[in-house]
Amino acid sequence: MLGTEAVDDGLAELYRDRYGPMVRLAHLITGSNAVAPDLVQDAFVKVSARLGEIQQPAAYLRVVVVNEGRAWIRRQEVERRHQPRPVEPIELPPDVDELWSAMAVLPERQRVALVLRFYEDLGFDEIARTLDCPVGTAKSLVHRGLASLREVLHDGTR
């Protein structure tokens, strides 16, 4: 258990090092740059309460950010499942824009798994820990996410 001073220093360091990367991660997970800083802010508040107890604050923070992002997506889901989530307009190259829009229609867990795999470069065991699921499920989510993405890009609809 860390002392108060060490916890404060740890939080400051964590904040300096991980705030930006976590905002970007939250943006990729939620598709909303506007909401990402708020989610990360909430995540830091939650992490700060347990900072003295946790062994790997950065990994724990990522789990909290992912959970916050997933909870936000679930709250945002519109009446019909798999209906595209609104994508905030940002200026992107056409091929990136097409893929970013396709990401918006994926089921939340597939989207998150793809972001963790191909943006965070996590292994399947780490993805499984982050999503609190078996490794097989993590592999399946990534595999299905890619398949869904192919389907959406091929169809150009959905």
């Binding site: 970007r24 943006h27 990729l28 940002i90 992107l92 091929d95 990136v96 793809l114 191909f118 890619l146």
Partner: peptide
């Protein structure tokens, strides 16, 4: 393409 796209979007964050 996915890696590149995610990186581009992240950089635009």
């Amino acid at each position: 393409r996915l890696r590149r796209s995610l990186r581009v979007v992240a950089d635009a964050t």
